[in-house]
Amino acid sequence: MKRTVPLMIVMVGGILMMLQYFIPHQISQTVFAYYTDWTPIIVAFALVLGVGSLTRIHSHKIRRKAKNWQYSYAVLIPLFGMPILAHLWPESISGGMDSPSIFHFIFMHIQVPIQATMFSLLAFYIASAAFRAFRAKSALATVLLLAAVVVMLGQVPIGELLGRWLPETGLWILRYPNLAAKRAIMLGVGFGILATSLKIIFGVERNWLGGAGK
């Protein structure tokens, strides 16, 4: 029973959505609208579960004085602190995002720089990964290496100074050979999605409901 009901919901929902695509009638539109109204509600409830999980795990850690338990405070304090701040000084309905609030200050001067820092790490990691990966070990690897160098130079103004052909060749690589390869992978992915969806709708694949098949 515990698994039959969810499987039935998936099957009925999946088939309904498939049929809905082909039926423009008002009834079909109403069903679809009903589904779209439900989604945000479910997401909102799931967020409560998520925050609950995070709070539970970190309060456990603090209580048990587990390894690195101090960091748990760094999670819990902002987790609850930011919403409280947003509502203590709500400059507007948007939850205090406007300039004078403390919330806005923390957002712009702590969260934005921290996140930008995380993303900018990519530049360092790409350099290190490129150094290790681009070796002319074989003919194919050499082609890859040359393509990478041309595209990299073509993307920046200095490539332009080295010669017009560089950015043009770079763009050509992006527009044609790159796209051809991507399309091939995307087609495979498309059919993978189709098959996986069918397996889920018809209950062949049940792992995602918990448990390893059968």
Binding site: I42, V48, G50, V51, W208, G210
Partner: peptide
């Protein structure tokens, strides 16, 4: 994702 979390939790528990 909070929904993925709830499903993942069930999956692991069941496994």
């Amino acid at each position: 994702d909070p929904i993925v979390f709830t499903v993942a939790e069930e999956v692991v528990k069941q496994a």
